[in-house]
Design a protein around this nucleic acid. Structure first.
Lengths: 170, 170
DNA sequence: TATTGTTATACTCTATAACTATA
DNA sequence: TATAGTTATAGAGTATAACAATA
């Protein structure tokens, strides 16, 4: 395996590379589609989380999204400046802020959800209906089987953890 | 679609999210597995490219890998310091450097290839042989169908282009 | 003593421009 | 005038530590 001519399979035959390539593309596309709304994916994630459970503390949002608390401060700052969310007093813990979704935030979040659905369709367009369903199933198996937390993106700025992604061409 | 209760499909049911999540994981894993070798994915890509076609100019490497030339300088600097590659005079163009793979670079590249093969197996382990083949086929269709250049990673630092990936939880 | 939110600092990455030597 | 390689600079992004208020 360490010979002069190792297995020169093209990168496009490596599942790991294809996943990284397509995942990176998906992330870029989502970021681009979200840009006109004036929010980043991590902010959309925050809005989405609040829509499901309003009034969470920043700390709870950090845990759910795998974002460091130092970073969450800036995210919520931006969202609050834009009138999308609001920091209120937490009823039980005077240290914490309860973050609440405002009407404008609710609306923007809904537009983001629509975008994410449209992106699904865009990315899967090359496949027939049957293959689309099969792919979804396989990806879910991979996600669970590789120990990834459902709905949590590894690329976030969680606690220490990993270096940078990238995988240029492996 | 902009109603109070939009399609609250879990993120783990969004193919776009799953691709981003798994792709990010794949990239992190590859970076980690490569770390003991002392090189980054982009440097492995450079070595791999040279192994296929030695003596390329930095500019040619940039085009093949979608890396900006300013960044390539640093990558080759590092590789040269570690005795993995060597800059020589280009036979035809005195402005250009011909980058050549040294024996140590050849060996390291081969180890990287072995790692990328092992990573394929690791990531696909949750699937049976038949599903593994099916997934590879589907991913290749998606890559081509979405206009991605075979073997070229979008996450590289090419010309201007896109903002950042990330897609925290869309 | 531990936790929530915050701020400051350093470090890496990336983006842009500009410079040189050639073509 | 354009290109290959290089360098410098500014801007994101991230990581670490430390702080005040509260538990």
């Amino acid at each position: 395996m360490t010979d002069a001519a190792p297995s020169y399979v093209p990168l496009s035959d490596h599942p790991a590379f294809l996943l990284s390539q397509l995942g990176s593309h998906s992330g870029y596309r989502f970021t681009d589609l979200l840009a006109p709304l004036g929010i980043k994916p991590s902010q959309f994630g925050t809005l989405r989380m609040l829509a499901a459970n309003d009034g969470r503390t920043q700390q709870q949002l950090c845990e759910a999204l795998n974002i460091h608390r130092n970073v969450m401060v800036g995210l919520v700052d931006d969202l609050e400046k834009r009138g999308l969310v609001e920091r209120r007093k937490h009823p039980a813990d005077r240290r914490a802020h309860a973050v609440h979704l405002l009407p404008a935030g609710q609306e923007l979040m809904a537009r983001g959800v629509a975008i994410s659905i449209a992106l699904d369709a865009e990315l899967l367009a090359p496949l027939g209906a049957e293959d689309q369903a099969k792919l979804l199933e396989l990806l879910q198996q991979l996600s669970v089987g590789n120990g990834l937390t459902p709905g949590v993106h590894p690329g976030m700025t969680g606690e220490p953890g990993q270096p940078k992604p990238c995988e240029p061409d492996h």
